[in-house]
C-alpha cells in the first residue's frame, strides 16, 4: 500500500450529492476540534492527533511517505 493522495473522505451510510461535501465536512470537524484553544493547546492537540492517526495507519512505509511529503517545501 502506498500513501493515498487523492480525495478519500467519506462517512459510512451518508449520501453525498456534491463532491465537495465530504471534504468540507472533514475540514469543519478539524477546525472545530481546535475551537477556543490557545496556540499551545492546539499544537498539543495536533501532536496527539498525529500519533493516534499514525498508529491507526500502522504501515511504516506509508508513514514515511507521508512524513516526507509533509516536510517538502518547508
Amino acid at each position: 500500500m502506498s500513501l493515498i493522495t487523492t480525495a478519500n473522505f467519506y462517512q459510512t451510510g451518508k449520501r453525498y450529492f456534491r463532491d465537495f461535501s465530504p471534504n468540507d465536512d472533514f475540514y469543519e470537524m478539524l477546525i472545530e476540534t481546535h475551537r477556543d484553544l490557545t496556540d499551545e493547546q492546539s499544537a498539543l492537540v495536533n501532536a496527539k492527533l498525529i500519533l493516534l492517526l499514525a498508529n491507526h495507519i500502522g504501515d511504516m512505509d506509508v508513514l514515511a511517505e507521508a512524513m516526507k511529503a509533509a516536510r517538502e517545501d518547508v
Binding site: I4, T5, T6, A7, N8, D19, F20, N23, D24, F26, Y27, L30, I31, H34, L37, D39, S42, A43, N46, A69, E72, D73
Partner: peptide
C-alpha cells in the same frame, strides 16, 4: 479565525500544488 486555522489553511494550499486530496479541500 485563529493561528491554527491559518496554519491548516496554508498547509492545505501548500499541499494542493502536488496532492489532489488537498486541492479538494481548498475552499
Amino acid at each position: 479565525k485563529s493561528k491554527t486555522s491559518l496554519t491548516f489553511r496554508n498547509a492545505t494550499l501548500g499541499l494542493a500544488r502536488k496532492h489532489p486530496f488537498a486541492r479538494a479541500l481548498v475552499n
